[in-house]
Design a protein around this nucleic acid. Structure first.
Lengths: 199, 199
DNA sequence: CGACTAACCGAACAGTGTTAGGTTAACTCA
DNA sequence: TGAGTTAACCTAACACTGTTCGGTTAGTCG
């Protein structure tokens, strides 16, 4: 089937189906052949629209990061930090399966740097030194990414029975999926609040 | 060369050479064939000593995590938290290339849980509720893993020239490898101090 | 000495990302 | 309208990956 009347593929369509596969089957569940099949096409055809799989993932990651909103610095910097972190976390947790890739790759991602730059500028305006501002922004990212990764990997499947035997202090309530998500969010909020308050 | 007089392989030797490869060539640089070659052996032979590659990585991860020291809670809980976090970070940053695997896999790792259990117990003894203790421990892990991941990925290779153009606020000093490590450590210490102080 | 196990090897399987070369539809321009 | 070019797909293959099967032999135990 050579050159169909209306093109089957476009970078946008590829990205969106790829992200759907990642959301459904996890990061390892995405292969070029599977992606092609789901697009009704052979694997090789993808390479006319996408330079490489890594690049594809990077593009997807960037498009996710670009939904982060850092425009909350009008009030004061503490509130701004908290809003920015929440927005980051929201973006990441909407597609948790891609977070390991995000964390794996270079942190020097275009979209990330743009937002860090804004954040940094706002902190400097608030009176922090450049170096302090960098470290504060880094600390914020620690909490955001640490939280995103932990929630991703909280797919516990231990047996709650011997769990209590071996770890008597730990509350086993967080093994329940529903509770886990809520606890994750509360832990994030607590860490964020403590961090900002402690500055 | 079937069944040599003295065995060439042992789980320990496999683990140690595998970790050396990871440290040298990164996580993706480890393949069973390469590992086998470096052990003077064929790939298939590994499977007499190791159930699967994933299991091998898990074992390595566990042995790294088991070097974490959480015995610093004798003084007060704040100091205990800080020491525990430092020890965790030290363990992770001694083998930064394996951190993505650690973060990827289930957080419910045996060695991790054992230490979290101790930490949790100490926090409860100090007067926190069980739920609060869980969240505090989680927050601490956010900072530890976030920091470990960021340092891993600080292998920036951007061009410092257009860097300043595009991100005017950001200090580009951290692009220098030596400074990056120091800044990473300082950011970690700042985040940790702020978090603990803010509790 | 014979049986058995433990340790390694060669070859293969199914899967991966990626490339080269071919085929044909759609577009461009005289 | 017709020729030439480009763009979009295909088939086939390459070099990998983790893993398994069946074989071969050295060491060990009865």
């Amino acid at each position: 089937m050579p050159r169909p009347s209306t093109p089957l593929l476009s970078p946008d369509r590829i990205r969106s189906v790829a992200l759907a596969i990642i959301d459904r089957d996890g990061l390892d569940g995405l292969s070029m052949r599977k992606l092609a099949a789901e697009l009704g096409v052979q694997a090789a055809s993808l390479y006319g629209h996408v330079r490489t799989k890594d690049q594809l993932l990077n593009d997807i990651a960037s498009s996710i990061l670009s939904t982060v909103d850092v425009s909350g610095f009008t009030v004061d910097w503490r509130e701004g930090l908290i809003r920015c972190a929440r927005s980051y976390r929201a973006a990441l947790s909407s597609h948790p399966n891609i977070v390991p890739f995000l964390a794996y790759g270079p942190a020097g991602r275009e979209e990330s740097l743009q937002r860090l730059d804004l954040l940094h500028g706002a902190l400097v305006d608030a009176g922090w030194s450049r170096r302090e501002a960098t470290m504060i922004a880094a600390g914020l990212m620690y909490i955001v990414f640490g939280s995103a990764l932990s929630s991703f990997s909280s797919g516990f499947s231990s047996d709650p029975a011997d769990y209590t035997d071996r770890y008597p202090h730990l509350d086993r309530a967080h093994l329940l999926p529903g509770v886990a998500r809520e606890l994750d969010r509360d832990s994030f909020e607590l860490a964020l609040a403590a961090f900002v308050r402690g500055l």
